[in-house]
């Protein structure tokens, strides 16, 4: 019990530290949000002015914007550790490696959740989608999606942060793994926006939950190897 409490304290301290650094380096937060907005606008331009087509494509655009801007966000959280040997110092503390993973993933989840909520609102405004009518299933989908992206992103951002080609390697490694999450999130969002006429929303949320559990457990179990130089 004491060990668990200690690991929780370590994870919270790491998440708090990351949140403080993110908030103080506001340019990074603003940059990520701006990138998400640009992605949405470009996809909107590419699809043309047909509002019915835009509304139909909204779930896919929403999650592409979240995933692509999420790449920047999780990478940024690990770049904090790359400055002046902070990741090496973090690895030398006498704490469980899974607690470090939990802390970094928790910080990533908070950032991804905030990003998801803002992008969801932007999609509602830009593509004239009524998100208020299905706010609860949409929020649950965003929460589950944020957990999955944070779980996968924490692992792969840790793996690539010491590489010179990290900006290239992170999406190459992370995006294929996120394919099931992207599929389930888009389907769940589309079902929620349509009022779930086929009763499939629950199944997609279950798939998302299973993805999250597998990725969190796998990340926590293998993060020790990520921290090794």
């Amino acid at each position: 019990m004491n060990a668990l409490r200690r690991e929780a304290a370590v994870a919270l301290a790491i998440a708090r530290k990351d949140a403080l650094a993110e908030l103080r380096g506001r340019h990074a937060v603003i940059g990520t949000l701006f990138f998400a907005a640009v992605v949405l606008l470009l996809f909107g331009f590419a699809l043309g002015p047909d509002s019915a087509r835009l509304a139909a494509a909204a779930p896919g655009l929403l999650w592409l914007a979240i995933v692509l801007s999420g790449l920047l966000a999780v990478n940024r959280l690990h770049l904090l550790e790359a400055d002046d040997g902070a990741l090496d110092q973090l690895a030398l503390y006498p704490v469980a490696r899974r607690a470090i993973y939990a802390g970094k993933a928790l910080g990533g989840f908070v950032v991804m959740l905030g990003l998801g909520v803002v992008v969801l609102g932007a999609v509602g405004i830009l593509f004239a989608v009524d998100i208020a009518a299905a706010w609860l299933p949409l929020l649950v989908t965003v929460i589950l999606g944020a957990i999955g992206i944070a779980a996968v992103g924490t692992f792969y951002a840790g793996l690539t942060v010491r590489l010179r080609a990290r900006e290239v390697m992170l999406p190459l490694l992370m995006l294929p793994v996120l394919a099931p999450l992207l599929l389930a999130s888009v389907k769940a969002t589309a079902a929620a926006l349509a009022g779930d006429p086929l009763g499939e929303l629950g199944s997609w949320l279950q798939l998302l939950t299973a993805f999250d559990v597998i990725m969190v457990v796998a990340g926590a179990a293998t993060y020790a190897y990520v921290l090794e130089d």
Binding site: K17, L20, A21, R24, G25, L80, D83, D84, G85, A86, D88, Q89, L90, L92, Y93, P94
Partner: peptide
């Protein structure tokens, strides 16, 4: 061993924004 060793490397391992 990590409980028993303190290490100061060339890098300081500090966070600039804190």
């Amino acid at each position: 061993v990590r409980l028993r060793v303190a290490y100061l490397s060339h890098a300081t391992g500090l966070y600039d924004d804190l």
